[in-house]
Design a protein around this nucleic acid. Structure first.
Lengths: 231, 231
DNA sequence: ATCGTCAATAGTTTGGAAAATATTTGTATA
DNA sequence: TATACAAATATTTTCCAAACTATTGACGAT
């Protein structure tokens, strides 16, 4: 027990730690979709008692990262086309709203953050040999997410931002799918141009940025679905 | 324990019962906003063990009906104007989306349900002396919610409908405020007319129903905020 | 051979006790 | 008198064992 606490580093609770680990394992695909999670396996895997595990499972079920059927345990939901559409639809509706708010309320610091995160994202597309720390495509993904987050960060709506975060988390499950056929060349080309354009529109507080963002997200949706339906 | 199970009536679990009771007590305002909830008081109040109580608390924190700080328990969040705006903003964005989907996918059964729930809502505004069961303003509220739900029910987006339900739950906390100065006369008058109009637009699959719904919800938002700011 | 019943098994839920953490109180010192 | 430190107290968090419930498979009757 002391080991667990020291392992977490901070004064986090055990259930919080288990929650994070389990969520990461689900999103990263370590636990394959459709597989049922056996209680005793989970207890061994995360080395904790029943109570924190149950609390973590309850939270994940509430956030729809897991499905629970009475007396038959929990399982990772199978990805479906209709679910992808559902998630992206909500995400687009909410991000539109958030961006509209950000355009109204954003200040200089907000603008600076956008430029900074965009810069970091573009840097992650450069060849590795110059950088001290090689940047992988995963690293680009992380910075990509940070960029999108920075656009709407100025929206004075904590609930809205939190919901968007949840929806983005949901799409994380399809990360591998999204990145299929998306090599460094493509990121340096089309995608980079699109992000540049988006940033310019946002910094200019152009209302057209709303539609542009919607279309940008919708293109991702279409890509994910087309890959998903080829199976 | 047997007493508890028999008291619940059904084969519900204790944690489920505690969850419902606690949520009701929060929404109905029995537990005042801003007050911290002490574990031992709650144990006594709901007459249960620690485990089911913790599970109920965890769920309510997840749904943002309670705020939790590590090792300092949970408390009922203070209502604020900005939070009301936040909730209504999200609700409007999501219900617009859902209604648009419902207009496309709704079938005859959906139309029938709308007419039925509207009828029931209007019936609840009639004088009591004719009805066997007197209908209170609370009953109208319940049917009002059912009516609004019926409008978007045909949207093939389980996640969207669930999120909307959560937002509507959040506005339940302001029910008392909403109903202030809203007597039977008003419900029979302006509000009824507005609902009728909304229903007609929806049944005609008129795209204008989207804006009309937005405005309808926004009027409620304004009303709640004006009452809230007068204090 | 099929259906229904019953035991065996796996999984869930609960209560209480112990551990960990935060807060308050009390005391000594400057 | 004020401040820092330490003990005491209050509260939350975790663990585990026991009670409970549903599902599965086997057995016997029709």
């Amino acid at each position: 027990m002391n080991e667990i606490l020291s392992a977490t580093g901070q004064g986090q609770t055990v259930s919080e730690t288990v929650y994070r680990s389990l969520k990461m394992d689900i999103l990263s695909g370590v636990i394959p979709s459709g597989s049922a999670l056996l209680t005793r396996d989970l207890l061994a895997r995360y080395d904790c008692g029943i109570s924190p595990l149950r609390e973590a499972l309850a939270r994940l079920v509430g956030e729809q990262f897991l499905e629970a059927t009475s007396h038959r345990g929990v399982k990772v939901p199978q990805p479906s086309i209709s679910d992808v559409e559902d998630v992206y639809r909500i995400r687009i509706a909410l991000e539109r709203e958030a961006l509209a708010l950000a355009l109204t309320h954003g200040d200089d610091e907000w603008e600076g953050e956008i430029i900074a995160t965009c810069h970091r994202m573009e840097k992650a597309t450069l060849p590795d040999h110059v950088a001290d720390q090689p940047t992988s495509i995963i690293e680009w993904e992380i910075r990509h997410r940070a960029f999108h987050h920075s656009l709407i960060k100025a929206a004075p709506s904590p609930r809205l931002l939190k919901l968007i975060d949840q929806m983005v988390d949901q799409t994380e499950r399809y990360r591998a799918l999204r990145l299929t056929g998306m090599d460094r060349a493509k990121i340096q080309g089309d995608v980079a141009a699109e992000h540049r354009k988006l940033m310019e529109l946002v910094l200019a507080r152009d209302p057209a940025s709303l539609d542009f963002l919607s279309q940008h997200l919708d293109r991702t949706r279409v890509a994910v679905i087309s890959i998903l339906s080829e199976r």
